[in-house]
Amino acid sequence: MRRYARTLVAVALATTVVAGTAGWASGNAQHALTGPPPGTAAWRSDHVLGRELPDPARDTPAQVALFFRGLSEKDRRTLAVRHPLVVGNLDGAPLELRYLANALALKADPDPRYASLAADPQRQILAFDPRGRGQVAEVFGDLSTAHRVSVVVPGSDIDAGTFDRTNDVYGTPVGMAKSLYAQTGRDSAVIAWAGYTTPVGVGVDAATGSLAEAGADRLTRFTDGLAADGVPAPVVFCHSYGSVVCGLAASRLRATDLVVLGSPGMRADDVGDLHTGARVWAAKDPDDWIDDVPNVEFAGLGHGEDPASAAFGARRVPAEDAHGHTGYFAPGTESLRAFAAIADGTFAVDGPYAVASYAEGGPR
């Protein structure tokens, strides 16, 4: 009875925090973008190669990769030119072909939200879906030759329009990924992945798991696509609500490590509840406002135990000199140094904490 009473108090407090912060505004409610890429219907009906094309909704990334391996370079390019939005978002399609397809799709899209993405033809855009608020993924480094790969999964308020905003840089996928890439070894690559519908503000969507469930499916397929292209299993960095996505994906996710930062919870009671073989790490700095959100999960509200708590059982990442909710990847911080060591596979562990221990050659 006492435990039940504490739960009710925590739920009431969680409701107060969320409502007091941003309100339960229905106008901010988001609908998860799911299903195959835009243009799939035209793709399915196209017989330009005289054969059936893989079904983006039904075929696995491994099946997609096998199909493209049987094509000539000319036929691959024909498909990218005719169906850039499908090829650019087709997990398992060749990496360079996806970069080409997304460059073509961005060049043809008049929406000013995507102007910065389209302006530089050297950007390696691995996914671009203009539907809704827009989704995008970008690669830093050479993904085809990298021995160590990381994926950054962001939290609330991130979409194609805020993907690389210039304010609050280290709270954006591009800012986090670029900062990590600058600190890691020369054979690394980092992917900024904004490939799911994120909550807007701190309202109902942020307090529940429906958007995270859809995001977990998309993240799982994305990492399956990397594997189909011969990319090493990545270290996945999950910020804020992104850690809810990672928690729900954990048991299916191809990853060597899961690193959560500023997490409201992973929809799990402890590391064992994630059912993953990946190493699990957690960081939370002393003045992160996420610490004011009660760690409960009751009647669909809240995301459970704090991954940075001793009870959860994750390895701790030092973050005492990071500031606020978006300061973990700021240059010079202990948390960034530890993240880079985890990404490079050169970390050591001192008690429960990660310690940066760079391999010969050091960071960039």
Rank of each mutant, 00 (worst) to 15 (best):
204 V>H: 08
14 A>V: 13
348 A>D: 13
159 D>F: 07
275 H>L: 04
304 G>W: 01
64 V>Y: 07
147 H>V: 13
1 M>P: 12
175 G>R: 00
185 G>N: 02
235 V>L: 01
124 Q>K: 11
173 P>L: 01
4 Y>K: 10
95 L>N: 10
150 S>Y: 03
117 L>E: 02
93 A>K: 07
122 Q>I: 00
17 V>N: 09
84 P>C: 10
313 G>F: 11
154 P>R: 02
323 H>N: 13
63 Q>S: 08
289 W>M: 06
332 G>I: 06
190 V>H: 00
102 N>P: 10
224 D>S: 03
74 K>Y: 13
171 G>T: 10
295 N>V: 09
346 T>S: 15
155 G>Q: 05
229 D>C: 12
224 D>E: 15
104 L>E: 15
337 R>E: 15
341 A>K: 01
323 H>K: 15
113 R>N: 13
182 A>Q: 10
1 M>A: 15
44 R>M: 15
345 G>M: 06
2 R>Q: 15
318 P>M: 08
28 N>M: 15
301 L>N: 05
83 H>L: 09
274 L>K: 01
158 I>G: 04
192 A>Q: 08
279 R>V: 14
135 Q>C: 04
130 P>E: 04
224 D>L: 04
283 A>M: 04
196 Y>P: 08
34 T>Q: 13
227 A>C: 01
173 P>E: 08
76 R>E: 12
186 R>P: 14
363 P>I: 11
107 K>G: 14
294 P>H: 10
360 E>R: 15
279 R>T: 14
294 P>C: 13
347 F>S: 10
190 V>C: 03
34 T>V: 10
222 F>H: 10
228 A>R: 01
155 G>N: 06
311 A>T: 11
24 W>S: 01
71 L>W: 12
193 W>F: 02
183 Q>A: 13
149 V>R: 00
209 G>R: 07
309 S>E: 05
62 A>K: 04
177 A>K: 03
247 G>C: 09
289 W>G: 09
35 G>I: 02
287 D>C: 06
12 A>S: 14
356 A>C: 00
118 A>Y: 02
237 F>K: 05
360 E>G: 06
353 Y>A: 08
9 V>H: 14
155 G>F: 00
123 R>S: 12
14 A>C: 13
294 P>E: 06
288 D>S: 08
334 E>D: 15
237 F>E: 09
254 R>T: 15
149 V>W: 00
100 L>V: 00
343 A>Y: 05
159 D>H: 11
277 G>P: 10
183 Q>K: 12
306 D>M: 07
44 R>S: 14
88 G>Q: 04
181 Y>R: 04
240 S>V: 03
144 S>T: 15
205 D>K: 03
138 E>N: 05
222 F>I: 04
107 K>P: 07
153 V>S: 10
236 V>I: 12
77 R>Q: 12
258 L>P: 09
237 F>D: 08
70 G>Q: 13
23 G>L: 06
235 V>G: 01
77 R>I: 04
16 T>W: 13
172 T>F: 03
152 V>H: 02
190 V>N: 03
125 I>W: 00
312 F>D: 03
138 E>H: 00
360 E>K: 14
241 Y>Q: 04
